[in-house]
């Protein structure tokens, strides 16, 4: 059986680890370490290598969920983790200073992978900050010439994580 890998990336604190924990059958494998910079105001620990969770399909085949570190200095891990991946879930934390720039940065860095597979964008922490408007995110996508799904989600909820995965595989299948 071929390996099925889904990659979850996004800004530090956007909820990548939480999303994997919400849907993984087994307790996620984590590589959290203490934060020593400004991020410490937001969270005490951050992922420095990867998160890992899994799902088992009805025939026993596994779907692996890999969460990347969020910080750009861990870009080398992004490149390692996407190898053989089925598609990308990009989480954007809307409570940060410039979520639109954050989205751009990840889309650019994962551009080759996205071109080969697909991406769904999940906006998190919308309860804390409703701006930018959803239309602003779609306007930013204009230059990609295609419409990626942008979904407002609560990654603590399993159904929201399922929705993103379904949107991703639908995009891979039909878009």
């Amino acid at each position: 059986m071929s390996e099925i890998k889904l990659i979850i990336t996004g800004t530090p604190g956007a909820g990548k680890t939480t999303a994997i924990a919400a849907i993984s059958e087994t307790p996620p494998v984590r590589t959290d370490q203490a934060t020593t910079d400004d991020l410490a105001d937001l969270k005490e620990e951050t992922t420095v290598a990867m998160d890992f969770g899994d799902l088992t399909l009805e025939d026993g085949q596994k779907v692996f969920l890999y969460g990347t570190p969020g910080q750009r200095r861990f870009e080398f891990m992004w490149k390692i983790l996407v190898q053989g991946g089925l598609g990308l879930i990009l989480l954007v934390d809307c409570s940060r200073d410039d979520p639109l720039a954050d989205m751009d940065m990840y889309l650019e860095n994962f551009a080759d992978f996205i071109e080969e597979t697909g991406v769904v964008i999940g906006l998190t922490r919308r309860d804390e900050c409703e701006s930018p408007d959803l239309d602003d995110f779609y306007e930013r996508l204009d230059r990609w010439g295609t419409v990626f799904p942008i979904l407002e989600v609560d990654v603590r909820k399993r159904e929201d994580v399922s929705l993103m995965i379904n949107a991703l595989i639908s995009t891979i299948e039909f878009a």
Partner: peptide
């Protein structure tokens, strides 16, 4: 890159 089948995607769903 994926070469995944519709059957596989249906199983994930």
């Amino acid at each position: 890159s994926s070469g995944v089948s519709k059957g596989l995607l249906a199983k994930i769903r």
